[in-house]
């Protein structure tokens, strides 16, 4: 869009009085969307701020609850699985909490992206907004919540006396990869959810099943050896694994898992982006 503008080089890519939009000379949708998303980056920030503020205002406990929720779940699951069923994992609380936090980030962000796009669709029919902004904002919001919930995680680790070493420096990498994977999935589900009101329920059921098929609350060792390869086809299995290694064992992530996680995240994000941007022009056409 900017190639027509003599000012484009000087000022980034603002629309000036001379910028010409030409429907016959558009960039491929995936590229155009990327350019527009960058121009609308403040919108993504505003959407994240809106969600955090709205949540905080509705109940002062909003932020506290974000931190407390996984802790409560951890307490209950520890009691049941560890105490009653005798699941033997060293430092099970930390193992469980790390897995739950990452899973909740993934699950909540993808679910939130469906409600964001449904909300956004009413606007997208009237004004131009890059449509990926809604999914990106949902993932950004999830990242803020994840960061908040690292506080209780650190507390638990301190109480349990789990040492924190240099391996912890890999946590941002694992989070980044998970965020990429999450965004890819969010783009897929929100491009369907925008048309069908019942899709969210279907997806919610699928998410629950997906969680039980991922070693979040149990160790992969309890899966019989001959089925294990099946579990490893699931990218979340590797993402949880690399996120958890430094927290639970103060160990570096396994190279195999790291490669699988990185490959899957890049691939899913790329496919999700292409799929979404190819179809997103349609949103404005639907009543």
């Amino acid at each position: 869009m900017c190639e027509h503008s003599p000012l484009a080089g000087k000022t980034g890519c603002p629309e000036t009085a001379q910028t010409v939009f030409d429907s016959a000379h558009r960039q491929p949708p995936a590229i155009e969307e990327l350019v527009q998303l960058w121009r609308y980056r403040d919108l993504v920030a505003q959407l994240v701020i809106r969600n955090i503020k709205a949540r905080y205002k509705r109940s002062v406990l909003g932020v506290v609850w974000t931190m407390l929720n996984p802790l409560l779940m951890m307490a209950v699951l520890s009691l049941v699985l560890h105490g009653l069923f005798g699941l033997r994992v060293p430092n099970y609380s930390a193992y469980l909490l790390a897995g739950l936090l990452l899973w909740q980030f993934f699950a909540q962000a993808t679910l939130a992206s469906t409600s964001e796009i449904v909300w956004g669709a009413s606007l997208v029919k009237r004004i131009y907004v890059p449509r990926t902004a809604f999914a990106v904002a949902a993932v950004g919001n999830g990242l803020v919540n994840l960061a908040l919930s690292l506080v209780p995680l650190a507390l638990i680790m301190a109480v349990l006396g789990i040492p924190v070493g240099r391996a912890a420096l890999t946590i941002p990498v694992s989070v980044l990869l998970t965020a990429m994977f999450t965004l890819g999935v969010a783009l897929f589900v929100s491009s369907v959810a925008v048309y069908f009101a019942d899709f969210m329920e279907i997806y919610q059921v699928a998410l629950t099943a997906w969680m039980y098929l991922t070693p979040v609350i149990y160790p992969i060792d309890i899966v019989p050896e001959r089925y294990r390869w099946l579990f490893k086809l699931n990218p979340m299995c590797h993402l949880v694994d690399i996120f958890r290694a430094p927290i639970h064992m103060n160990a570096l992530p396994a190279m195999e898992s790291l490669c699988a996680a990185a490959g899957a995240s890049v691939l899913v994000l790329l496919l999700g982006w292409l799929f979404f941007t190819r179809n997103s022009d349609e949103i404005a056409y639907r009543a």
Partner: peptide, 24 residues
């Protein structure tokens, strides 16, 4: 909506010069 770039034309071509603000 075409002029606001909300819709893309099914056929034909539209060119717009400058910054568009939909007042709605």
């Amino acid at each position: 909506k075409l002029a606001a770039r909300v819709l893309q034309p099914t056929e034909g071509r539209i060119r717009i010069r400058g910054r568009v603000a939909p007042l709605l």
